[in-house]
Design a protein around this nucleic acid. Structure first.
Length: 420
RNA sequence: GGAGACGUGUCCGAGUGGCUUAAGGAGCACGCUUGGAAAGCGUGUAUGCGGGUAACUGUAUCUAGGGUUCAAAUCCCUACGUCUCCGCCA
């Protein structure tokens, strides 16, 4: 969330951010409630100070055998007044908090304003692979090589679920292990493996709730949510903590399954592995000092790019425009990998700087060089999501006879095989 | 899942309604002492919100949320967590 002091001083900027992110939030009402809240807090503190002061006198007077019944009667009045103030303050605060949680992060000032069509090309690497034959798409290739079982997965769980079989399952597992090892050994991330089911507070911490409640799978009986990304448990790992200056930066990598209801997105890019309710992803998460977060953002984009370079897959990098930016992000870069069979780019990574937005929600702080307590900046990015990487990989490395070559870096993970 | 015990600051730990401004200890930081270190001595050692240029100050926080009371770490209720025993289980 945003600092209320920041909102007070930059109301117009925040309103513009809400509009540019196509969100809705009543800033004027929030500020009105803020004033009320401050007033009530002041009254409460004043009356409470009086109550505390007199409460200390009562035992002394009793000891001195003085009559305290009048004072106790007066204190009864004061006690009632305090109760009334508390009730009103709780109401105002609940409404205030509810609004504050729906205010999105403010985009960084170098983020292009606009919708998806305003996303800006940053760079690309490699070229679209040329074939001497007509390249097949991943569904045809999977059928030829028995890599996926899409029909039976649907039988198990419904549309939007996929199953990997045989070499397909092994290839997916190879990708995950390769990516984890790469980030751990070459980029110095430390691995964590955390729960896939998290509570409501955790989902609020990273900003999925309250906005995206209906996009999440929810276990009613325990009020737990299936994580849509490992970002959620990893970022919240240090919630309500104050880290020592020397503990920063922290770099974590985590592999997890991700669960998304994807309500409303039916019919769009749903073929095969393109959009799933459940998929696997390797996620990078960093906790850094505020002054470092933008250079770290670039570093993380490079970290993700390194995986695609090692796999020899052509990709491009984009900066998202304000309207395409997620609720909590200040700036996001997407990496899209080329899929020759599908003849299009597929998003495989989204790398974001949340600045102190998530840190405020989850209360993740650190003590700086001057011992001052400050919020950390959090960042995360996929490194990478497996299904679309899988698509690009088999489509790029397909041979004319329908077999699939294994890129050098994955061969150790597939028993040294050069062809699947 | 059943029964019981418990939850206090960075840690240990005292505290069964007002004498608590949460005792005492450990750790940590700084100072004194020392040739240097240890020991010793002294001082300091949380976070949020508000007031003040500041020193400082009001208030809240003893797992969390409610309640009782003039007054709650302390009494009551609920949730969560931890431990022990039983049951179940990869």
């Amino acid at each position: 969330m945003l600092d209320i002091k920041f909102i007070r001083n930059n109301a117009e900027l925040v309103k513009a951010a809400v509009k540019n992110k196509t969100e809705k939030a009543d800033i004027d009402l929030l500020l009105k409630l803020d004033e009320q809240k401050k007033g009530l807090q002041f009254d409460y503190d004043t009356f409470r100070a009086e109550q505390n002061r007199v409460s200390k006198e009562i035992p002394k007077m009793k000891k001195a055998k003085q009559d305290v019944s009048d004072i106790i009667a007066q204190m009864g009045q004061l006690s009632e007044t305090l109760k009334e103030i508390t009730v009103r303050a709780n109401e105002v605060e609940a409404e205030f908090d509810a609004i504050l949680l729906t205010i999105p992060n403010v985009p960084h000032n170098d983020v292009p304003v606009g919708g998806e069509e305003d996303n800006e090309f940053v760079r690309d690497w490699g070229v679209k692979k040329e074939f001497t034959f007509a390249p097949k798409d991943h569904i045809v290739l999977s059928e030829l090589n028995n890599l996926l079982d899409l029909k039976r997965a649907v039988k198990l769980s419904g549309s939007g679920f996929a199953g990997y079989t045989g070499n397909g399952a092994m290839l997916e597992r190879a990708l995950i292990n390769f990516m984890l090892d790469f980030h751990i050994n070459k980029h110095d991330y430390s691995e964590v493996a955390l729960p896939y089911l998290v509570n409501r507070e955790t989902m609020i911490g990273t900003g999925q709730l309250p906005k995206l409640e209906h996009d999440m799978y929810h276990v009613n009986e325990d009020d737990l949510f299936l994580i849509p990304t490992a970002e959620v448990p990893v970022t919240n790992l240090y919630s309500k903590e104050i880290m020592a200056n020397v503990d920063l930066p922290k770099k974590h990598v985590a592999y997890s399954s991700c669960f998304r209801r994807e309500g409303g997105s039916y019919g769009k890019d749903t073929k095969g592995l393109q959009r799933l309710h459940q998929f696997n992803k390797v996620e990078m998460v960093r906790f850094v000092k505020p002054e470092e977060s933008y250079s770290v953002l670039d570093e993380m984009v490079n970290d993700a790019e390194d995986i695609l370079k090692a796999l020899g897959l052509h990709y491009r990098v984009l900066v998202l425009a304000t309207g395409d930016l997620s609720f909590a992000a200040a700036k996001t870069l997407d990496i899209e990998v080329w899929a020759p069979g599908a003849n299009k780019y597929l998003e495989v990574s989204s790398i974001s700087n949340f600045e102190d937005f998530q840190a405020r929600r989850a209360s993740i702080r650190y003590r700086d060089e001057n011992d001052k307590v400050q919020f950390v900046h959090t960042l995360n990015g996929s490194g990478l999501a497996t299904p679309r990487t899988f698509i690009s990989l088999i489509e790029t490395y397909q041979n004319e006879d329908g077999t699939i070559s294994v890129p050098k870096v994955l061969q150790p993970y597939l028993g040294g095989r050069e062809v699947l």
